[in-house]
Design a binder for these strands. Sequence first.
DNA 1: TCCTAATTCAATG
DNA 2: CATTGAATTAGGA
Length: 361
Amino acid sequence: MLHYNYNLIATANQSGSYYSKPTTTLIEQSGNSSHGFTTYPSTGSTSVTTSPPSSDSCSSGRNSSSPDYFVSSASSGLSVDQTDLTVQEFEIVQEKIKQEGTYGITKPPYSYISLISMAMKMSPKGQLPLSGIYNWIMDIFPFYRDNQQRWQNSIRHSLSFNDCFVKVARPLNEPGKGCYWTLHEKCGEMFENRGHLRRQTRFKVKERVQPKKKKSAHSKQTKMEIKQEEPDEFLNSSIVASTVTTAEQEEDMKTNVTSEAAGAVSVSHDHASWGETSNVYQSVISSPQTYEAAEPQVSINFNDHYPLSYEYNDFSTSVHHPQNYSSESIVYNSSGTSVKNYDGYQNTIYSSSDPDSARYL
DNA sequence: TCCTAATTCAATG
DNA sequence: CATTGAATTAGGA
């Protein structure tokens, strides 16, 4: 079976790692495959543990040229873990890439939420700066090399709005701006059932209660419910501090995600701007909390987030991308941010608002 | 058809 | 870059 090879190449240097985009090569795979994408081990139906960056598989001392950094159960002949549909989605993406050289210019059938999740899960540390998310998306899905202003704004909105994404402070001695983003340790597989377009339920850590009633309260707000408050300790649990998801926390999560706790609830305020219990509409915003920096006490070099360079086949530079996209290597600086941009890539093949794009998939 | 998740525009810090 | 609001679009039960 043919697979793209995303071998890790240990060529990181002190000035930071970089991605290189080598020439396209297909490698013959037998048995276990190099999947090309990676996810964290899925340990259960309710949790994808966003493991501390320090335990990222990328830095676990494997042979640098071994593709086993990328784990695939789907193409190994084993049954696919139902909780790990992300892997399956990746398989689909890869198939598409194999056929067409790139995912193609069509709009991928994934929501921004799922794109962000994929990018994070694929990254060596499970966390990426905003620019890293942008670049990953553009690398894999050429569609998003257009209309950047629009969708990138949406990405930012998604990151801020959804509790499943949490900020991780940039290590103190690491230059660069912006923080890292990672998945909440207990957001689970958000797209368990079916596609990656719409989740059944939004993952919420804690309901943000509207601090003050805006006048002109709208009709939409009539039908609201009060959801159960999450224990403070849950809210405050550091995402980098706990690898283990306790049974209790599992319960919390389930409750959190699915409950509508009739007649809840004592509200404990740990954020000044959170008002009293009241109705919530869809604008329940996550706490603007920033988690502790990853491995703050560990010596940090610039390669912490991209400890190793890796190269992958250049599916994004194949036949289907417009000519004005040059395929030179993407070089990531110390913060994992690509210095390459697609600014010159404003072709007009698409309108991102083209509702019909997906039908070509 | 309804509920609400997702997207978009855009103001503000 | 990040947060938030509001309006709109759209997935899918």
